[in-house]
Design a protein around this nucleic acid. Structure first.
Lengths: 204, 204
DNA sequence: GTCTATAGTAAGATAGAC
DNA sequence: GTCTATCTTACTATAGAC
């Protein structure tokens, strides 16, 4: 009777291994993309054997999907933590924009995640859709709420939210993801100030 | 004496082959990315042998770089053909925005190019920078010119151009590249109208 | 210049020992 | 459950015939 009856130990070990594997997979997939990553390297990065990887995940595609879905929910909460609507809209928008750009800028993991997500959206369309649902949609809805404030007097807050979101994310893509900082330099503050100016149109 | 002395035939054949190879390489690289593409498939798609591919291009990386640089200059001219500044700014912007979104939307090649360019920007940073210089910078500068029109009264036309460009491109990324059309649906016209409204702030 | 054939390597996935 | 060793396939790149 060598078999272990208790689920406790069994499950704990499994969870640890699964966590290790996902950690190694993240490192490799985010750095090299889907096709550029080998299961051998994932196993090495995770500190387990390749057979162990296959005992916890069906195949390379299954591992990739689980990893990206997990990352999508993580990134969602990190960038736009639901902000208390204390101050006036202009101040809130300035705070949100600055925070979002700073976070995306400083988070190498997020930059690599954007590359992989967009790069593999042709091969894994349903995965891209999951990320749109988990990351972009909630942020767009939150921004829409802010922009619907009566004093802003915006006729289409939903479309304006997409503009605001697009300006911030595309700025991150050009400056960080595509390494354009030296080619088309611009301070984050200038972008945000111009955004605030457009949105809180000076009725003076 | 079977050798051909004239350079004409020789050069024409070479150019044809090079063109064939680039065509096949485009098909494969845009569909499967860099790591996901094999030189065997490129050769088949181009209708030549693999050895012929290697006789015209140093290696896989060299072929990929030549292809993407060629595509970058092609895409640049296609989206924003220098528009005559006939009408008033609002009309020009509406026309430009509609045209840009329509072109990006209908051009599958452009969608795939965006995926590959962003997806491989980690592996090929200098290539991403070349594309920023060839595609994004000129468009941003052209838009800056339009937005500097006195009647628009925009304090920072350059930053505002980045906002406008970002809103359009990110809209394309969410709706087309990432297949988000069904998850966060929105008509192009709504985005463009909201943009025009922000920029030509009703001073009424 | 272009081809076929192949060398050499690395990939995804699994069998079997413990 | 986890490992080592291995099967099979596909890859990059080149040599040699024509």
């Amino acid at each position: 009777m060598v078999r272990i009856k208790s689920d406790e130990v069994d499950r704990d070990n499994s969870v640890d291994k699964v966590e290790q594997i996902l950690q190694g997979a993240m490192q490799e997939f985010l750095q090299n993309g889907y096709a550029g990553t080998s299961m051998d390297r994932v196993a090495v990065a995770a500190g387990v054997s390749k057979a162990t990887v296959y005992s916890h995940f069906q195949d390379k595609e299954g591992l990739f999907k689980v990893l990206l879905e997990q990352l999508a929910s993580k990134k969602n909460n990190s960038i736009f933590g639901t902000e208390p609507i204390g101050k006036e809209p202009a101040a809130v928008l300035h705070h949100l924009g600055t925070k979002a750009l700073d976070l995306m800028n400083s988070d190498q993991e997020h930059t690599a995640f954007m590359r992989v997500l967009i790069g593999e959206s042709g091969r894994f369309p349903e995965l891209a859709q999951i990320c749109v649902r988990a990351m972009i949609k909630p942020v767009a809805e939150t921004l829409t709420q802010y922009l619907a404030a009566p004093e802003l007097n915006i006729p289409d807050p939903e479309a304006t939210a997409r503009i605001l979101l697009g300006a911030l994310v595309h700025f991150h893509i050009t400056q960080d993801v595509m390494h354009g900082r030296d080619i088309i330099p611009m301070e984050s503050d200038r972008l945000i100030d111009a955004l605030i100016h457009l949105i809180t149109k000076r009725a003076d």
